[in-house]
């Protein structure tokens, strides 16, 4: 059933409506588990659109296997998605810093509050993100270190390439995930791909994992795909490579590439002089888990992340 979570009049003729699709068994006992899938907090992130579509399609195909409640919120920032703007258009506000929001706040804070209230009480929430315009990411789950005991077993069920455990102190406490975890909703963030694109291979992998997770918490009783074991990593396992020059980046490696310290990752070139400004080398052995996608860079731009240590073992 499609429901409107929040509706706000826009300035001329339109309404901002944030909708969800509630999928639930025909006869509820009142003891069902509830999982929420949310997407589209940022208007340039589209991976979640395909994932939400595919999850709903698969559930509808085998509806008799549904044992719990699945709430799907495909577009939390519909104006941003329509206008290809990452933030909330008009206010220019980053929507993922204003949770839990405020009923007395401006447009963004008000809608954030309605979304937060609607999700509160769920057993699990998955916040589906893509990377931004600049970086390609391999599919991964991100969780905070202060909720490892609750979140890690569920994060592993998703079977993505890695589960990245962040120090909670490095996470803004206005994010949807942080805020929901604060009220007892086990919330995880999935990152994959890049902005403005849909990578179906990554998305299907994530959908497969979501059904395994749903099965593990009693929401789904249908067939699931075999998933691989996720690598659990901490900040110390991820090495950042930042540019020390400005120019155009020409990559030598792709995501998932195994590299050794000293391997060439790419070149930063000066277009007008036709010269190489910098050759970027791998700082450590490992696997490329993030790689620069947008070629224009400046000093300090993130070029790649290497998942080091035992990544290749």
């Amino acid at each position: 059933m499609i429901e409107t979570v929040v509706s706000v009049d826009l300035m001329v003729e339109e309404e901002l409506k944030i909708k969800k699709n509630r999928l639930a068994p025909d006869f509820l006992t009142g003891y069902e588990k509830r999982i929420c899938l949310v997407s589209g907090l940022y208007g340039d992130e589209l991976q979640g659109q395909y994932i939400c579509y595919e999850v709903i399609k698969r559930i509808k195909h085998s509806f008799d296997k549904l044992r719990g409640i699945v709430d799907v919120y495909p577009s939390l920032n519909p104006m941003g998605l329509d206008s290809r703007i990452r933030e909330i258009p008009g206010s220019d506000m980053d929507m993922n810093v204003i949770f839990p929001g405020s009923k007395s706040g401006a447009l963004g804070e008000y809608t954030a509050s309605c979304i937060f209230d609607d999700i509160s009480g769920a057993d699990v929430c998955i916040d589906l993100h893509s990377s931004n315009l600049y970086i390609q990411e391999m599919p991964q789950v991100r969780i905070n270190n202060d909720r490892v005991n609750e979140l890690l077993p569920q994060a592993k069920k998703l079977g993505l390439d890695m589960v990245w455990i962040h120090p909670s102190t490095s996470v803004l406490n206005g994010s949807l995930a942080y805020s929901l975890n604060g009220v007892g909703v086990n919330t995880m963030v999935i990152e994959s791909g890049g902005a403005y694109k849909i990578n179906q291979e990554y998305c299907n992998k994530i959908v497969d994992g979501l059904f395994v997770l749903m099965k593990s918490i009693g929401v789904w009783a249908g067939k699931t795909e075999d998933i691989k074991e996720s690598r659990v990593v901490y900040d110390k396992d991820i090495k950042y490579i930042n540019a020390e020059s400005s120019g155009i980046f020409i990559p030598n490696v792709n995501i998932y590439a195994n590299v050794k310290a000293g391997d060439k990752i790419g070149t930063i070139v000066n277009v007008i002089t036709g010269s190489e400004e910098e050759i970027v080398y791998a700082s450590d052995n490992g696997m490329i888990c993030s790689i620069r996608d947008y070629p224009v860079i400046e000093e300090g731009s993130l070029i790649a992340r290497i998942l080091g240590g035992d990544a290749n073992e």
């Binding site: 706000v8 009049d9 826009l10 300035m11 008009g90 007395s104 706040g105 401006a106 447009l107 008000y110």
Partner: peptide, 8 residues
């Protein structure tokens, strides 16, 4: 010049 509903 124009405002959304619910804005401060």
């Amino acid at each position: 010049p124009m405002v959304f509903q619910n804005v401060v």
